[in-house]
Nucleic acid binder design. Structure first.
Lengths: 114, 114
DNA sequence: CAACTTGACAACTACTTGGTTGATAAGTAC
DNA sequence: GTACTTATCAACCAAGTAGTTGTCAAGTTG
């Protein structure tokens, strides 16, 4: 999976689009809650402490990006993770965060890390 | 590298922050141009077809997130990738994009893929 | 010293978007 | 049928931000 270099403009656009979808705390939290399995909109809204409309809106975005699947179950609509790879991405980000924070810390403690 | 579940609110915030920094085409393109090695701000601006001020602003953000390093070299300032892991992330995103697009395509062609 | 180059910062505009509010559609229960 | 539940859609507002313009600081050259 090699990315062309220099990167074509439309590809940069698509990649950024994907990142942008994940660049919102509420959406990260929604995805995290879906780790336990499919959930209905209302349940998520309660658990996350926000409105049903808000969750629905975010889920619509996530669905548009192909990150979650939708399924009607009677009166409710169940959403579930469509691409488990999202969590790999989150872990990758956490790794980067740790490296960055360690670097900052070394500036304070006096170059202990690295 | 396991992410706690349920995810703490501040962590979701930090992860989203990271993704948000990458959620901008111009910044993706800047990072891509830095793959060839350290570059000066002005050179990047020329290559990317935007203003020096704009590139400087984006590089400031990337630097704040710890994604690039800054180094004064005479009169110029050289920026370079600080965390090669960014490109792994981009490839990961591309993989997700491919899966999503293949899924959409199967809807058109009539369930050939999957 | 002055003239020039290079990059960062501040202010501003225009656009995007997260969250709310209100209304509508789909489904169930009676 | 009506009443109730659940989710989506549309309109709106407020906050954030990408890009421009103008200015300033740091460094080099003559």
């Amino acid at each position: 999976m090699a990315i062309p270099h220099p990167i074509p403009d439309p590809l940069a656009q698509m990649i950024a689009e994907r990142f942008k979808v994940l660049g919102e705390p509420m959406r990260i939290r929604i995805l995290d809650h879906l780790r336990d399995g499919p959930q209905a909109v209302g349940v998520l809204a309660d658990e996350l402490g926000t409105s049903q409309q808000n969750v629905s809106k975010h889920l619509g975005l996530l669905h548009g990006a192909g990150l979650v699947h939708r399924e009607r179950r009677g009166n409710a609509v169940l959403y579930e993770i469509a691409d488990q790879g999202v969590f790999d991405m989150c872990e990758h980000v956490c790794g980067g965060l740790q490296r960055h924070l360690a670097e900052l810390q070394s500036l304070v403690t006096g170059e202990v890390t690295r």
